[in-house]
Every structure is written in structure tokens, then in C-alpha cells.
Design a protein around this nucleic acid. Structure first.
Lengths: 247, 247
DNA sequence: AAACTAAATTGGTAATACACGATTAAAACC
DNA sequence: GGTTTTAATCGTGTATTACCAATTTAGTTT
């Protein structure tokens, strides 16, 4: 149950207090001893939590003075608040251009690597991994590490943001054939070194994904509405009364 | 002198041991007690250092078993090894598409904000900041936080990678007029909601930057060659001998 | 104004008890 | 006798308590 180490729980508590505005940016946290009493843990544990927050860049420790909340700049953008739609559109835009660029510089060896991911995907094993590799090989083929970096960051987003993970898994289940076909189309375009074809194939790939996401989210929203309506129906139902009065 | 808190120094020591290959990926670190003796500090300090390393993602702690070194995957891509050229090309590609997208959705208010950055830049104050804001406002105008995220990440790269910082500052000194003109052109295209014009203006902006970078690096390389040649000239020079023999 | 306390706060250590995981030894079972 | 299950043990991280040192800050005195 309470398996997670104690200081992590304290980190969460302090962080949420900061997020809630209980401790505002620039202000000083209560002294260690007070926090220890507050959360009913020992001082070393509080210190561990503060160190974790410090490494994360959320607070700054000034010896002899206190612990101060650090101004969070782009933290709101980071990870949270980004939807699967936004991520997919961004990837379409960026990876579309990457595909166009890669079409001009991709080597035979890289094409062979791409082909291997296609085979792996067809066999149905390591599908997730094959998917990521496919896109990363193309990014690498641009000979531009900044683009690799951008793709890698967006992929991390997909894996770390819980909402996006949920939305993606609901889509990716039974669409392997689609992905296969689309990846093959991209591969073919790259093999013929046709930049425009590669870009458009990549756009198609993500466009289909956006639509699939839309359908999935829509149907889930419908489910949710039905569920809530059923709850209300239970609350406001006259069935009981009707039955009784019928007798 | 030894002002920095003790555990940070331990973090450095352990990290350098990992980097040196003393502790290989996947292997277990010596137990806390042993490390404490090794570095001549107390166990709580070792624990603090390990927590810092854990938050940084360099090690993983398994209760009752030990502390294990984590495989570093994309660390090599991250930040290091990326040149100013690569970064600029990546930005051209990505922000070009962003400009095209933003042209369709940008609001009057955002256009006004853009105008303010132009005015600030013309006055010559907060130029760096005005530059960043200009690009971030456009990213925001896409209504896509994943794109904002990507732009923000690339900008961070520009500020954190020492080599890129050096290359950029050598270029940005006396080119404010260029930047002003290019930003104005982008602004005008966005104001008229012309996606293609916005994309191409953005491309021109970065293209000029790439050329400027190239010139700067080239001239610096020339300087370097001259310097080295002068050194060699000193080494192999016959001037001294000639002078002596002349007498 | 400068120097000097004194209080508040974090920095660091030592010793202790406990909980978890893995290994080993013993017991039970087949 | 060999195999599986169970129990004990040891190594390791987890967490607490208590204590003192170093630094900063504010106030006080000179």
C-alpha cells in the first residue's frame, strides 16, 4: 500500500501545496522542523523531500535562511495540459517536414532498417517499439540532431502524459493494419527519394490518427453521457412508484 | 570554498564514477554504508546524494536490494553534440510550419503583442527577450500547446548549449536591423493571414541566420588557422638565424 | 555607522530500530 | 533420494531520534 518511499509522498504534498498557491513563488517554506511536525515525519525525511524538489528545480535552499519556492516558467506547458490531438497535429507538421528532408538524404542502410521495423510490425511483435523506431530512423536520416531531439521529446510526451497514453491506447488496439499500410507508403516514398510524396504520406498517417482519436474520444464521451444519464435515471426514476401504484 | 552542500559533492563524485565506467549501467552501487566510508561522510548524506541521483534519473533504488545504475538513453542527443546549424535548420522547418498554421488562427490581440516586441526591438532594449517573445507568441497563436512545447524546448537548447550560445552571440551582435526587417516581414504576412507568405518569411529569417552563422564560423576558423600558422611560424622561423647571420 | 550578540534556520553526524528482498538451510513431500 | 515448500538469516535500504555545527538575519549595543 504505502509502498512508495515516504519522502516521495512528502514531495507530492509540498508540490501540490505550491501548485495550489498555498506557498507562492518567491516565498519561504516553513522551516524543516515545522514541516516535519506538519506532515508527521522526521526531519531527515523532510530534508530528503526538499532535496528532491530542489533537484527538480521547484525550490531553492539557502543555507541558514530557508527554503524558497522557485518561479516556474514554462512548467504549465510542460507535459500537462497537452491533448493527444495537439500532440498528433504537432507531430504531423514536424515529422511531415522531417520526412521531406529525409527523402533527400536517407541512405540504403537506413531504408533497410526501416524495412526491418515494417517486418517486425507485420509479425505483430514489439509493435510499439517498431513504431517508435520507424519514426526515429527517419528523424536520424535528416542528419540533424536538433530534429531528432524534437521528435524524441514529443515521443516522451506521448509516454509520460497519462491522458495522452490513455487516448492513444484506446486507438492503437485494432488499427495495426492501418499503421502498417501507412508506414509502408512512407517507406516507399522515402525509397524513391520523393520529398513531396514523403511529406504527404506522413501527413496522411497522422491525419488518419487524428480522425481515429476523434472517433474514440467521441464514443467515449457518448459512453460517459449514457452512464451519467443512467445514474440520473436511477435517481429520478418513477419505476418504483409506478410498480407500487400498479398493484 | 567548500560552500556547496556536502551531498552535491557526493553526487558529483558518484556521477563521475558512473561516467568513467567505474559503475556500469545496470550494475549495483556499493551499499550505503560502504559509500559512506568510502567518501568519509555519514549515511544520511549518502542517502541524500542517492536521492538527487534518483530524481535526475541516473540511478534506481530497489528497497532491500540495492541502488542500480540506470541506462542513459537519449542523454547523448540531449543538448550536447547539437550544432547551431542543426538547431537553426530545425527551427526553420518547425517554425515555418508554425507560422503557416498561425496565419490562419492568429487574433488581433496577438498581432498587437507581436507589434510590441517589434517596437521594443527597434528601441534596442530587451532585444533577446523580445526575440524569444516574438517566436513564442506565434507558436501560441497555433492554439497547439505541443508546438509551443517544441519551440520552447529548442529555445532552451539555444540557451543551455555552450557552443551554440557562443556561435549565436558572435552573429547576433550587429545584425539587429536584419532581424527587425525579417520579423516585420513575418508580422505583415501573419497580419494578412497569408499562410504561404508567413512560412516563406520565416524560412527567409532562418536562412539568413544560417548564412550569417556560416560566415561567422568560417571567419573564426580562418582566424584559428592564422593563429596556428603563426605559432608554427614562430617555431620554424629562421628570422632569428637570419638576423644573427646578417650581422 | 560599525561591531557585536542572539535567535532562527539549515547542515551534518551518530546511533538505533525496523522492513524488505534475496539467499540459504531445513523440513516436508513425493 | 530427489524435489518442492517453508523457515531462518543476512544484507540492504528506510526511517527515527537526538545532538551539535555553521550560516544567515535581525536586533542591540557601542
Amino acid at each position: 500500500m504505502g509502498n512508495r518511499r515516504l519522502f516521495w509522498r512528502i514531495v507530492d504534498k509540498i508540490e501540490s501545496l505550491i501548485n495550489k498557491g498555498e506557498f507562492t513563488a518567491g516565498s519561504r517554506l516553513p522551516p524543516e522542523r515545522e514541516l516535519a511536525e506538519m506532515f508527521d515525519v522526521s526531519r531527515p525525511t523532510i530534508r530528503e523531500a526538499i532535496i528532491a524538489l530542489e533537484v527538480r528545480g521547484r525550490v531553492e535552499v539557502k543555507t541558514g535562511s530557508g527554503v524558497y519556492v522557485v518561479e516556474q516558467k514554462n512548467a504549465s506547458i510542460k507535459s500537462k495540459e497537452i491533448s493527444a490531438f495537439e500532440l498528433t497535429q504537432a507531430r504531423a507538421l514536424i515529422e511531415g517536414e522531417i520526412a521531406a528532408l529525409a527523402a533527400q538524404s536517407i541512405t540504403e542502410e537506413e531504408l533497410e532498417q526501416l524495412n526491418k521495423t515494417l517486418i517486425a510490425m507485420e509479425k505483430g511483435l514489439y509493435v510499439e517499439q517498431a513504431d517508435r523506431e520507424f519514426h526515429e530512423i527517419i528523424a536520424r536520416a535528416t542528419r540533424n540532431k536538433a530534429l531528432e531531439f524534437a521528435v524524441s521529446n514529443l515521443w516522451d510526451l506521448r509516454l509520460t502524459n497519462p491522458q495522452i497514453v490513455a487516448d492513444y491506447t484506446s486507438v492503437c488496439k485494432n488499427n495495426n493494419e492501418c499503421v502498417m499500410d501507412e508506414h509502408t507508403a512512407i517507406y516507399t516514398a522515402l525509397k524513391s527519394h520523393d520529398a513531396n510524396a514523403a511529406r504527404s504520406a506522413m501527413h496522411k498517417h497522422f491525419n488518419r490518427l487524428i480522425n481515429a482519436l476523434f472517433d474514440a474520444v467521441e464514443s467515449r464521451a457518448l459512453e460517459e453521457i449514457k452512464r451519467k444519464n443512467n445514474e440520473k435515471r436511477g435517481l429520478y426514476s418513477l419505476d418504483g412508484l409506478v410498480n407500487k401504484s400498479a398493484h
